[in-house]
Design a protein around this nucleic acid. Sequence first.
DNA 1: TTGTAAGCGTTATCAC
DNA 2: GTGATAACGCTTACAA
Lengths: 329, 329
Amino acid sequence: MNINEIAKLANVSRATVSRYFNDGYVSAEKREQIRRVIEETGYKPSAQAQMLRTKKTKQIGVIIPKINSESISGMISGISKELKQAGFWLLLANTENQEREEVEYLKLFSENQVDGIILIGTIFTPAHKRALRALQVPVVVLGQKLEGYSCVYQDDYLAAKESARMMLKDAKHPAYLGVTKRDHATGEERFRGFLDVLEEKGIDWDNSFYEESAFSVEDGYEAMGRLWERHPEIDAVFGATDSVALGALGWLQEHQIRIPQQVAISGVGDTVSGRIVAPKLSSVHFFYQTSGQEAARLLLELMNGNPAGKEIKMGFRTEERGTTRQTAI
Amino acid sequence: MNINEIAKLANVSRATVSRYFNDGYVSAEKREQIRRVIEETGYKPSAQAQMLRTKKTKQIGVIIPKINSESISGMISGISKELKQAGFWLLLANTENQEREEVEYLKLFSENQVDGIILIGTIFTPAHKRALRALQVPVVVLGQKLEGYSCVYQDDYLAAKESARMMLKDAKHPAYLGVTKRDHATGEERFRGFLDVLEEKGIDWDNSFYEESAFSVEDGYEAMGRLWERHPEIDAVFGATDSVALGALGWLQEHQIRIPQQVAISGVGDTVSGRIVAPKLSSVHFFYQTSGQEAARLLLELMNGNPAGKEIKMGFRTEERGTTRQTAI
DNA sequence: TTGTAAGCGTTATCAC
DNA sequence: GTGATAACGCTTACAA
């Protein structure tokens, strides 16, 4: 069933049928004939033919590092909601934390397939920047700030400061659990926020209070163990993500350390798990789903010809809970 | 840059260029000429033109009820891994728990767009079945068993039995938290498993020990409160999912009820959160990611002409932890 | 307001 | 082995 057959059945030319679906420049009479035939046959124009002809696919490529995470899936949920409403499909590219794959997908998407791209990235290597510059379609960067590109990101620096303040209070020996490279937003920015709070409070930073931990509960648990071995005097722990903080919490509780009396802990991200443990994890809430929606909207604007470079920094909400002392002693 | 220009630059016909990419019926000499031109120009055939011509999109539609859930995102992760390897793209359709949308997307996908569909559904209404029958492309149902269709699903019945056995042990007044309708697998099947264990143990079931709870921690918490008001003699709680069980755990702990001494709890799904709380939640582990991979493989087989109807029931692993008594008293 | 005709960039058929 | 040539199903000038 194609446009020719519909045209024949409706006694019009195929151009008229096409117009029926597009500009709508059709007389009431023929409009009705066509409508009837379409209803009877259940005809739908071939998306592929339309794509070829119009050079528009109505598909948006979304590149993500990993799907099994509250933050990413929240963002995707927001993106999908917004795109659906605008009549776009979501083409998902999962890189499984392989940076090279991000570049690969950027190229693949650019050459074909999609009208726009949303990149939920972690770090921007020279290869990334080259691929981004070579892009033929609009792109929005989500979760990171990137000069010269439209982007939507969390206020990682300020959020980390707030989280650090909760944890710090009257503590003398704070520690940091996370990474400081390979991820600009959750790495460098959060660490910077943490350090600045220390400075505010006049606490000198000794780098042996930093312990590297990937962003999972297990890694946080292990890292806490290594940290404690070096510094059992620690009285506050900052987890760069809730997962890390929860891993640390687990380790400390298993070792009979009282939370928050002996050690205070705070995280970033406000995950479901953090609200389930006892005591509940002090954290900072990000609006992941909304940021996904914002990114999608930004992309739609871009595709409508708006200039690139608009930046949206999302707000956050501090959630002080049981793992930090409510009042300074 | 299209196939004609490449042909001209390489001094061959465009048919030869096409063959270069497809059947490969090209002499070594011309092959080399074409290769060079392609390398220089960075030419890639237009996916849209190929789709139109071959009637193959190399895209798979994946319909999901909701993305923010460990089970669904695990499945998608598995699907995406497998599809990528086979050179297929993943077109994501998020229904946000609107059953009607599932039917809508089935139609949309069928008419166009995709070479195959993976449906992660919850329930099958007559409308669903009509849409499935009308499908023009192969489909695999993931997470539910559906007669006559290729499907991959968890052994919800047996898993629920195992979970119920852990929780039950010497308990006299077990309760059930979950739903029994709107979701065949996580609703009916798990409830059936629960009831059968009760029968095994010779415990009569009184339906006032059932309390409806949607699958979230908050709902589990609320439901537990309602349940306890009716039956403070409860000594074991079965959560149809880990989230529900965790909500119940939270409520009970807040009310000074000792777990597992006074009340034992078990869940289904083995989420990250369940491993973080203290005591850790006894549960049953499902292989969500693997089931996604299996579904993708099944779909690839289907698209290769294999007959539909193959069913894959996934295994599971019992995880007895702190919320159930390790040994019967 | 409608129809004719060209063309989007491929692949498939069929001679050569 | 290779090259014309004809689709695939649609949109869009342009002419009427």
